[in-house]
Design a protein around this nucleic acid. Structure first.
Length: 757
DNA sequence: GGGAGCCTACTCGGCCTAAT
DNA sequence: ATTAGGCCGAGTAGGCTCCC
């Protein structure tokens, strides 16, 4: 008897071993069948001689073998044929009273577990936990459905938790209840220095992946975890900075110029005369609460040095692994106790991201104070103003706090967009007049002549003095009459009131985008800074250090005279390197996959964005921006058909190679102008994993939206029976027609195959 | 069934800077 | 000088589909 353990922790060899061994012993049974030994004896022999081999130490390997290995083992028992060659396996089991080997292993494992569950050694086992993620159906949004008062209580306590970690004794949170709007739910603002803004969800609002931007508990928990992590990090840092035996902070700053954090962990320990063991002893004494793994409920482990662990134990907040916490759970007394003790709940219920169509108060690319002030005048930030005020230091709508501030008042946003573009156009017109009068204006002087021509060409053609007047008049007319116009397609079919004009007015931003970029060898660049100091008049050699941040390189040089110089290969806006953002934007808009471009960069030895950063940019900036653009353009398009009865065509496309039908993009197109009026992106998980229902659901969503805004008289689709049924039952006032192309295609197919139509 | 490939979401620590 | 917090990359876990 032995167990064969492989270095990859698979059990193929062990199973192979026991199958081989038991097969040999099956030969004994075969010999005993010939002299007609009775069945009872054969069964006893099998149970005592052969079966023990097949189940030996199964508690170790049973749950880790694959099905085909399990089948191989079962095959031995099948081949035993104890009751005769003509009986089936099932009959043999019933007659002999033997269970399948699989069932027996299950039972043995179960018994083993029950025997050991109360064993003294239980303390040595890792803590059990239940994942709070719905891993199989992550797109099913699970809300926190507590009462409004419960929501408030929960949010408030979370805020208090952070307050406590921050060391604030006074509970200076203020809860403000915003005015109730019908159908909008209630919003609670809990604010203090940590700037937490929560919105509760309307109890009557149906669960939908793309409805309002209200937050559920699952949205907020990761942010709170992050907040707490930051608070703990700072707490630990400040503690060590004040530690009596440690080197004073002045020394750190003197030695390392930029402060405490720039010193590596090893250096810090060395300077503090601490070693890692002492530190662990300090941070994890016997009385210390059990150290959790991390917020995601992973297994506990011996922690390496980190600032979190370096916190003194009396200041460490208790952290708990909670069991399964369904979204419908109200706050229990235990929750309340934990929360008031300054702990956190590790319950980031996984759900789908919500990308509300919001209008940022400031361009996420260029969020300068100057632009911010100008936009406030245009009433863009109507609904976000209060929230933005609470986000101290962030002028951009989309911060790394994951765009928590949202608003579902789409109608007001659309109006805001319209007002915004109008005001920008007016400003643009005035500026254009100035430009034609003063060709050497200050702004354009910042850009070279060639660049300025190229800049204007991409938005709309550079105008002469005569054309400028003509163009200006045209624009004014267009604003009133909404007639079609001839302009470039750079920004879509309707470029009159789009962000293209806004971009044009933002020359700094546009300059960043249009600036030439090129590939440069690092060594050649470093030579420039290494050979001589960048300070005028100083010719001393410099010591340089550099590091990459995405596609950006930062070079710090210090010459022997002490002159410091910092070079950054990318402009910075709102603490974001513009080139990094533009690289992510270009990648996404080119329709490529990140991994492909990353691979190209790897082959080229080209510094590139990390996947985390790319997807963060995508989530925080790019997708909201696309939503904004589409929202604005769609509104402009629909205005043209406001008073008409229109005929629209609809069809869907499965968005994946091989037509796996996981995703469906459904388009609604106006028949006379070929303008896309609506788009719906469906995921199979939105319709209970039944992909055939996606088209029907998409049509329903599109029509629900469209019929509120325009008069849809006729819908042309392919011959989908589900869509046909939908139109008959739900939209009986809309004529449903079948697409001729689809019909012709099917007829042709039938004819070529010589089949009846 | 398992691996490859792509994507999403999160934690954590280093780097850096704005605010006080 | 101190404090607090954002940005970023590295790492981790997992979902989903296709292909072999």
């Amino acid at each position: 008897m032995a167990i064969v353990v492989q270095n990859n922790l698979k059990w193929n060899l062990h199973v192979e071993h026991i199958v081989k061994k038991s097969s040999k012993r099956l030969y004994i049974l075969r010999l005993l069948k010939q002299p007609k030994v009775d069945m009872k004896t054969l069964v006893i022999l099998y149970i005592t001689v052969i079966r023990p081999i097949l189940k030996y130490a199964c508690q170790v390997w049973h749950f880790n073998i694959q099905n085909f290995l399990s089948d191989d083992i079962e095959q031995i028992q099948k081949h035993a044929k104890i009751i005769g060659p003509n009986s089936t396996y099932k009959e043999a089991l019933e007659i002999t009273g033997i269970t399948t080997l699989y069932d027996r292993r299950e039972r043995l494992c179960d018994e083993f577990f029950k025997q050991n569950i109360n064993d003294k050694m239980t303390d040595l086992y890792p803590d059990s936990f239940t994942s709070n993620y719905d891993l199989r159906f992550p797109l099913q949004l699970r809300e926190y459905k507590g009462k409004q008062s419960d929501n408030f209580t929960w949010f408030h306590k979370q805020a208090l938790t952070i307050n406590k970690i921050l060391g604030k004794t006074e509970t200076n949170f203020t809860a403000e209840e915003t005015p109730k709007e019908p159908g909008k739910g209630e919003s609670f603002l809990l604010s203090d220095d940590s700037c937490i803004v929560f919105q509760t969800k309307d109890a009557n609002q149906t669960t939908n992946h793309n409805n309002s931007g209200n937050f559920t508990r699952s949205h907020i928990q990761p942010r709170i975890n992050n907040k707490i992590h930051k608070a703990q990090k700072n707490k630990a840092r400040n503690h060590f900075a004040r530690k009596p035996n440690s080197v004073p902070c002045n020394t750190y700053n003197k030695n390392f110029a930029h402060g405490f954090d720039r010193v590596s962990s090893g250096q810090r320990l060395k300077m503090m005369n601490l070693n890692e063991n002492k530190l662990r002893e300090f941070t994890h004494s016997n009385n210390h609460p059990h150290q959790p793994a991390n917020f995601r409920g992973q297994r506990a482990h011996i922690p390496k040095f980190s600032w979190r662990n370096a916190m003194p134990q009396e200041q460490q907040p208790r952290q708990h692994h909670k069991g399964t916490e369904t979204a419908t759970t109200n706050i229990s007394e235990s929750d309340e106790q934990e929360l008031t003790e300054g702990s956190m709940i590790s319950t980031p219920l996984k759900d789908i991201p919500i990308y509300p169509m919001t209008i940022p108060s400031v361009s996420p690319i260029l969020g300068s104070q100057e632009d911010s002030e100008r936009f406030v005048d245009t009433d863009v930030s109507l609904n976000q103003s209060s929230s933005i005020d609470l986000c101290k230091g962030n002028t951009s709508m989309f911060t790394d706090d994951e765009g928590e501030i949202t608003d579902d008042n789409s109608s007001e946003e659309d109006i805001s967009l319209h007002d915004l573009t109008k005001s920008i156009l007016e400003e643009l017109n005035a500026e254009q007049e100035d430009m034609t009068r003063q060709s050497d204006s200050d702004v354009m002087n910042e850009i070279s002549d060639d660049e300025s021509v190229g800049l204007a060409d991409d938005i709309f053609e550079m105008v002469t003095e005569e054309d400028a007047e003509h163009e200006t008049d045209d624009m004014n007319l267009q604003q009133q009459s909404h007639s079609t116009t001839e302009c470039t397609d750079t920004f879509g079919p309707h470029c009159r009131f789009t962000r293209g004009d806004e971009v044009y007015s933002m020359k700094k931003e546009y300059k960043m985008v249009k600036e030439k970029k090129f590939v440069c060898s690092l060594d050649l660049l470093l030579q420039i800074f290494q050979s001589r100091c960048q300070t005028p008049g100083c010719t001393a050699e410099s010591q340089i250090q550099y590091h990459f941040i995405g596609v950006t390189v930062v070079i710090n040089s210090v010459c022997s005279e002490g002159h410091k110089y910092r070079f950054c290969s990318s402009p910075q806006v709102n603490n974001i390197y513009a080139n990094n953002l533009q690289a992510a934007t270009s990648l996404m808009f080119s329709g490529n996959q990140f991994s492909k471009i990353e691979r190209m960069a790897k082959f080229f030895n080209l510094e590139f964005l990390s996947s985390s950063t790319y997807y963060r940019f995508q989530r925080l900036y790019l997708i909201p921006e696309i939503n904004e653009w589409w929202s604005g353009m769609r509104k402009e398009i629909l205005v043209e058909f406001a008073d008409k009865e229109i005929v629209v065509g609809g069809d869907g496309q499965c968005d994946s190679p091989g037509f796996n039908a996981k995703n469906l993009c459904y388009f609604i197109m106006e028949e006379s102008t070929n303008h896309i009026l609506d788009v719906e992106v469906m995921d199979k998980r939105h319709v209970g994993l039944v992909s055939t229902n996606m088209e029907k659901e998409a049509v329903q969503r599109c029509l629900d939206r469209l019929t509120k805004e325009v008069n849809v008289g006729q819908l042309v689709t392919d011959a989908s029976t589900t869509v046909k049924a939908l139109l008959e039952t739900r939209y009986d006032n809309i004529v449903h027609s079948l697409d001729v192309w689809h019909k012709a295609k099917s007829i042709k197919k039938c004819l070529t195959k010589d089949l009846p139509v």
